[in-house]
Design a protein around this nucleic acid. Structure first.
Lengths: 234, 234
DNA sequence: AACACATTTCAACGTTCGTTGAAATATGGA
DNA sequence: TCCATATTTCAACGAACGTTGAAATGTGTT
């Protein structure tokens, strides 16, 4: 508490809203709960932000710019170090994931709720398509461009689907839901981001390299579906 | 409409609740909205189910049993065909994913909402750990057992983290959020489950095989974190 | 001190929420 | 037909919702 600046009420409202939205979702939280956590009257939220929805947008926007900036820098750093030969897939994935860890280490428990919020949005049929596109697509397209150069003659659809799998694995992991703790009987921990980060780039990069290869057939026919046996039918 | 049985009001309530919960989440929907969609008085919901929360649980339970049963059967079928040599990782993943496709084809637009609901729950910090564990862990542990046999001398933690990545990729994909449509400029479609299914087993199996290998070092140190440059700091 | 302006509180608005007791209706066996 | 029971509707409860106008308080300038 030496050089801790006093936080503005606006920031305290955003902090409380971020945490509660992440824990219970937009509709699972009331303005009164948020303002009680922020320690101020409920009307103050409507002075700084004109509606509940605008408060939610402000929560999202507060961090997305910095996140995108740092990720972009990680990618440009990487490409600068590989003047001629393109960086490997694994290096690109790491440049996409590492900034999340960096920010988490920089401000304990700040970004944690933000990541949980993003995971919710990413998996929401209502907002997933629209919001993730608005906030992340320009950056994601840059990373996909780098992956395209690292995977020559790759089919475009394979590339996008591979990123889609990456996106699902990444957001769930950073949501820290506690699921893996239960499933593994405690030998893995949701909040052990270093353990996750030690494994995710290798896992995901292998997926990209297996899927994004030039093919003779343009029609994707690798997996064949098997009919379900009669017995299981209702 | 030849042999279509008249649906009970209980089922119509469950159908309406399933669809609306999937679209807007538990707190984003009111009992009155659900009963309006079901075409009955709101009090009827409290006659069949005693509370909103119990209705939600009934929605979840209605399908999870059949889903687990069919998935288990797919795995046992597979193991029966491989008496001595264990099935490949890719075959096991397909046995885990294919039933989702089968059920989707069997009743159009029924399971779709259910999968979207599961994706929400899986990525919820509030319920993700608890509900997914309760509904799916016994089955998932059987699949992980099969994967363990297919990946000899695999580190347990690698195995669980690999399944975790699979879980995130799978639930996001079956949530059909529309994100990949936007990102890809239309060349990939969220509702093209065949395209997803043609790619996911190969992608995920490659991840498992890359990560779940015997290692000299027990400490996971494959990925090194890089510090973020000064400029990006606030 | 007096002022303009930003910030915060107070008290309430109309609406909608989840839920319920009691009445009305449908159903099926005696 | 009558009755017991299951299903469905009606009308309302208190509580909590998002939001707001106006008053009170703080802050910095002249």
């Amino acid at each position: 508490m030496a050089k801790a600046k006093k936080k503005s009420s606006r920031d305290r409202i955003l902090d409380a809203a971020e945490k509660l939205f992440a824990q219970h979702g937009f509709d699972g939280v009331t303005m009164r709960q948020i303002m009680r956590a922020a320690g101020a009257d409920v009307a103050l939220a409507y002075y700084h932000f004109k509606s509940k929805r605008d408060l939610f947008d402000a929560v999202m926007l507060r961090r997305v710019e910095l996140l995108n900036e740092i990720r972009l820098e990680a990618l440009e750093d990487l490409e600068r170090r590989h003047k001629d030969n393109p960086p490997t897939v694994e290096e690109i994935i790491s440049a996409f994931v590492n900034p999340l860890l960096e920010l988490l280490a920089r401000e304990q428990g700040k970004w944690r709720h933000y990541y949980a919020l993003i995971a919710q949005i990413n998996n929401s049929t209502e907002f997933g398509g629209e919001l993730m596109t608005r906030y992340f697509d320009p950056l994601v397209k840059r990373f996909i461009g780098a992956l395209r150069r690292a995977l020559p003659e790759c089919d475009e659809r394979d590339l996008f689907w591979s990123y889609h799998f990456l996106s699902g694995a990444l957001t769930l992991t950073f949501a820290e839901t506690g699921r893996i703790d239960n499933l593994s009987g405690g030998i893995c921990r949701s909040d052990d981001m270093d353990a996750a980060n030690a494994r995710m780039p290798a896992f995901i990069a292998a997926g990209f390299k297996a899927l994004c290869v030039p093919r003779k057939q343009s029609a994707p026919k690798r997996a064949k579906r098997k009919t379900v046996s009669r017995r299981a039918r209702k």
